[in-house]
């Protein structure tokens, strides 16, 4: 390893860890300069996280948000070329730091997902009427093997809080009250044209969406909806098929489907 590489490692180590010794041969003037670089590093990360997690910061308040940022930066110093990546995994940091306020982590997950969607490739939705025309002549086998392509970077997960209300309340600057849902829901983050957005759907959408995103076909989807039922009655299969149809309709209406049988 070259001397320059070693010196750069030592320099960066001093920025990341204020307790790290300064590189050999350095005096007071270098120490004063290093203090500026340390301040720049921390300031840039705080700014990046504050920009990505605007509503999460408002929900937490400045002191707790700063605590979250510092913990996150120490545990996950950035490695990528874009500073936006510094915010990756902040929802997990919030889960660990604020275990009694899990709505914080859920909101952070939404904001991170929306950031990623904002720069995703531009695609046109497959319109419901086009799907109706394409599937008009489908037989049972066509339906069973149907695969869907979704918007790039669209994602879904189970949540336990009414994030739609939380989002609005924070945006309006109103006081946040208890937003715990009676039952978990699926939070689906997608893009409406150029605008990232999210919606809450029934809980069973999460696994179904993930399965289809991973390449499952419509027949597999019905199996996913039947869950652990190894010996389903005909009426169970019928109900699962109806449910799959309702989901497909919802995904088409949300503009999530961009192609069929890609």
């Amino acid at each position: 390893m070259s001397t320059l590489a070693e010196r750069q490692d030592a320099f960066l180590a001093s920025i990341l860890d204020e307790g790290a010794p300064l590189p050999s041969g350095w005096g007071n003037s270098q120490a004063a300069g290093m203090a500026v670089y340390r301040g720049n590093y921390r300031g840039a990360l705080m700014s990046a996280l504050a920009e990505t997690y605007e509503r999460t910061a408002l929900l937490l308040g400045p002191k707790e948000f700063a605590q979250g940022c510092i913990n996150h930066a120490i545990a996950h110093p950035p490695s990528g070329w874009t500073i936006d990546e510094a915010g990756e995994g902040f929802d997990e940091t919030c889960t660990k730091l604020f275990p009694d306020r899990l709505e914080v982590a859920e909101l952070a997950w939404v904001e991170w997902s929306m950031l990623e969607l904002a720069t995703a490739p531009d695609v046109q939705p497959f319109k419901p009427q086009d799907f109706a025309a394409a599937s008009a002549q489908f037989g049972d086998e066509d339906w069973g093997t149907l695969r869907l392509q979704f918007q790039p970077r669209a994602r879904a997960r189970l949540v336990n809080h009414d994030l739609e209300t939380l989002w609005q309340t924070i945006g309006n600057g109103d006081a946040v009250s208890d937003t715990k849902l009676e039952a978990p829901a699926t939070c689906l983050v997608s893009r409406d044209g150029e605008r990232p957005t999210f919606t809450l759907l029934d809980a069973d959408h999460a696994d179904a969406f993930a399965a289809m995103q991973d390449g499952a076909n419509y027949g597999d989807l019905i199996a996913v909806l039947l869950g652990q039922n190894d010996d389903p009655a005909p009426e169970d299969i019928q109900a699962a098929a109806m449910r799959a149809g309702a989901m497909l309709g919802a995904w088409l209406n949300e503009g999530l489907v961009t192609a069929i049988n890609p």
Binding site: L4, A5, R7, Q8, D9, F11, L12, I15, L16, G33, Y37, N40, Y41, A44, L45, A48, P77, P78, S79, G80, W81, I83, A86
Partner: peptide, 17 residues
Amino acid sequence: CWTRNSAHNSHDLLPLP
């Protein structure tokens, strides 16, 4: 300038000797 080593990125314009 330089901004990173093989492990981390400072996201700052760091000085070169």
